[in-house]
Simulated assay, not measured.
Amino acid sequence: MHKRDTFQLPRKTSDVYPIHSTLPLFKIIRTHVLQTFSFCKNYQKGIIKDDDPEFLHQYRVTIRRIRAILSLHQSLFIPDQLKEINFAIKNLMQPTNLQRDLDVYLMQMEHYFNLVEHQHHQGLARFFDDLQHQRQKAYKKNKHWLKSEEYKAQYKLICIQLKQLSPLMEDLSSPPQEMINTLLMNLNNHIITSMKAIDSQTSDAQLHRLRIKCKKLRYGLEYYQPLTEQLSLSLQLKTVKFLQTKLGDFNDSSVQIDFLNHYLEQYIKTGRRAKAIGLLLQKTQQRHLENKQQLINEVILCSQNTAH
C-alpha cells in the first residue's frame, strides 16, 4: 500500500521593505499587498485536499496581514477604494471562518477533556463528535466555495482593485522614510496611550482593540525591518510580538466562551452533553478571568517600562 501523497506548505520568501527602491511609498505598498494576495492561491489546493489544517490557517493569516498593512497605510490611499477592497477581502475570507474555528476546538480536544472530571467525558465526547460532523459540513461548503466561479471572480476582482489602488496626491512628494517613521510612530504612540489606560476595570473590548493595534504594528515592523534601527520607536518588535500573543490567547478564550454559550442555546439544553459543556464553560470562564488579570498586569508592567 502506498502512502497517499501530501502537499507541502508553500514557502514564501521573506517580504521586507526594499530599502534601496526609488519608488514612492504608495507604489511599494501596493506592489507588496498585491504580491502577498496573489500568494494566497498557493494554499488553496492544500485547503481543498484537507490533509493539514495549517493550509487554511496560513491562508487566513496571509489575508489578515494584507488587511493590517492596508490599515496601517490607509493615509496614503483614497479612502473609498480602501473601503471597497477591505469589504471584498473580508467577504472572500468569511466563508472559511467556521471551519477554522472548529479546527481550533478539535485540536484542543485533549486540553478540554483535562478540564472536566472523568465522569463527564462521555458527554464531552458526544459534543466533539458533533463538532467533527459540523467541521466536515463546513469543509465541504468551503471546498465548494474555493472551487466556485464566484470565488474565482471575486479573487480576480480583488487583484484588479489592488492594482488600481490610487494615492492621495499630497503624499506623493514626501520622502518615504519620513512617511514610514510618521506612520509607525503614530501607531506606536496610540498603542502606548491605550496601554496606559488599562487597569483592573478594563473591558474585554478594550483589550481586543489593543490586540488589533499591536497586530498592525507587528506586521509593519516586520515589513520595515531593514529600517527599524533608524526609526525612533519606543516599542520594539519583540515587545509587540509578546503583547500580540498574550492578547491573542485572551481573545481566543473569549471566542471559545461565546461559542460554548451559542452551542448550548442553539443545539442542546439538557442531558449529559449539556452538563459536560456547562462545566467546560464554567471552567473556561474561570480561567478567562484569571488570565485577564494576569494579562492586565503584564500590559501595565510593559507600559511602565516603555517610554512615550
Rank of each mutant, 00 (worst) to 15 (best):
I89G: 03
N291C: 08
S75I: 13
L279C: 04
N305C: 09
F37N: 00
F55N: 05
Q177S: 08
L183A: 14
A125P: 05
L237I: 14
K147C: 04
D199Y: 00
E110F: 07
D15Y: 05
L23F: 10
Q58G: 01
L72A: 10
I257Y: 04
S173F: 04
R273G: 07
K283R: 08
I48L: 00
E229Q: 15
H57P: 02
E117K: 14
G271F: 03
S21V: 07
I296R: 04
D103I: 01
A88S: 14
M169P: 10
L70A: 09
V116W: 05
Q8T: 12
Y219W: 12
Q35I: 12
R135F: 02
L9N: 01
D101N: 06
Q285T: 11
Q58L: 13
P226K: 08
L281S: 03
G271P: 03
K275R: 10
D204M: 04
K45P: 02
R218L: 10
L227T: 09
K3S: 05
L72P: 03
Q293I: 03
L247Y: 03
E170F: 14
P79V: 06
Q293R: 13
V33S: 01
D249K: 12
P175A: 06
Q119Y: 12
L183V: 15
Q285A: 09
I28H: 02
M1K: 15
V104K: 08
K269N: 11
S200K: 07
F250H: 09
I160H: 09
Q164H: 07
L115Q: 10
K246A: 15
L131I: 13
H133K: 14
F37K: 00
L82R: 06
Y267L: 05
L279I: 13
C40E: 05
A153N: 13
L260W: 02
M1S: 14
